[in-house]
Computed example of a mutant assay.
Amino acid sequence: MLGKHINLTWLRTFEAAARHLNFTETAAELGLTQTAVSLHIRSLESRLGNRLFHRRARHLSLTEIGQAYVPTVRQSLSDISLTTASLFGTTTSRMVTLKAPISTCALWLAPRLPKFRAVHPDIELRLVSYIWTDTTGFDDVDVELRVGRGDWKDAASEKLSDETIVPICGVGLNSGASKIQGILTGPLIHVLGQEADWGRYFAAQDIAMPPGISGYFVDTMTAAIELAATGGGYAVVMSRLVEMANATIERVSVVGGEVSIPNGYYLMRPRSKRSKRPEVLLFEDWLFKEFSDES
């Protein structure tokens, strides 16, 4: 029976532990000892009459009921924080700063942000884009998305998605019966840093990378899509970015099947000792859902 109130400190510890899945990192964030974190979790589990975590050697994971409990706890902690700020004022900004690749910002994130604002109109959003991954720190960034293999040395990361690429060209450019023959005539548009994608695409078709095809080199997938849309040639780009290119009018055609790539989207996990603000946690949860829905 839950006749007594549950200790709010236990819930804060549970939320942080569910995020880190590591009691040592949870203790560092909350300024507690690892023993205190374990005690908070055991006390909460005893109070609820259910185990919230599976504890194995060097591995911590949420139980099924723990997974179901996390969103409610997170939302409740956020509601308490936001209501407190509304009634009594706060010096803490309720702005979330998100950093992501420029093509992701323009073609995938920006069109979706109004959905988040519709649910959380009191949270301001600041979107910062970049072309090349910058590992100089997280001082001014609340949430960072990166595209890669998750092997960065500056911070831990959590995978959000697997990705595929598709070949595209401007509408009407490839009207012949053989799409692959059309691609082989070029020009090919290469994205700097992703030059291997064309090789992956041709390998998936059991075709050797054709030598001597003239082409272009651009620094973003946004530029590659624009160049392809205006008749500049063929590009291979992430499948999830093509939809927005055709949002208002069909500008590019997909001229081949999807091919898996080793890169995916990752949410960076800086090893900060500061507790994340509730609005940041809400935005991270929303990001996970957006990627999950598309999968």
Rank of each mutant, 00 (worst) to 15 (best):
M1H: 06
M1Y: 05
M1C: 05
I6D: 01
N7F: 01
A17Y: 02
A17M: 06
A17S: 15
A18G: 07
R19W: 10
L21I: 05
F23R: 14
A27K: 10
L30A: 11
Q34G: 15
T35D: 14
A36I: 06
A36L: 05
H40M: 03
I41D: 02
R42V: 09
S43V: 00
E45T: 12
G49M: 01
F53P: 08
H54E: 10
R58G: 11
G66Y: 04
Q67A: 11
Q67W: 08
A68Q: 15
A68E: 15
Y69H: 03
Y69T: 10
V70H: 13
V70F: 13
P71Q: 05
V73Y: 09
S78I: 00
I80L: 15
L82T: 10
T83V: 09
A85Q: 11
A85L: 11
S86F: 10
G89A: 12
R94S: 12
T97Q: 12
P101R: 00
I102E: 09
A106H: 13
A110G: 03
A110F: 01
L113G: 00
L113P: 03
P114T: 08
P114N: 12
F116Q: 05
R117K: 15
D122Y: 08
D122E: 15
L125F: 02
R126T: 08
L127P: 02
I131A: 09
T133L: 04
D134I: 06
T136F: 05
E144D: 05
E144G: 06
R146M: 11
V147R: 11
A156P: 06
E158L: 10
S161Y: 07
S161T: 14
D162A: 10
E163M: 15
P167D: 10
I168T: 14
C169N: 09
G172S: 08
S175W: 07
S178R: 13
I180F: 07
G182Q: 09
T185S: 10
P187H: 03
P187Q: 06
H190M: 05
L192E: 07
G193A: 00
Q194P: 00
A196F: 12
P210L: 02
G212S: 09
M221E: 14
A223K: 14
L227P: 03
A235L: 04
V237A: 07
A245C: 05
V255C: 04
G256K: 03
G256C: 04
V259W: 03
V259A: 07
I261A: 01
N263R: 07
Y265P: 04
Y265N: 10
L267R: 10
M268I: 15
M268T: 15
R269N: 13
P270G: 07
R271H: 12
R271D: 11
S272C: 04
S272F: 00
S272M: 01
K273W: 05
V280I: 13
V280M: 06
L281M: 13
L282I: 07
F283Q: 03
D285A: 14
W286Q: 12
W286C: 10
L287T: 05
L287E: 01
S292G: 13
E294H: 09
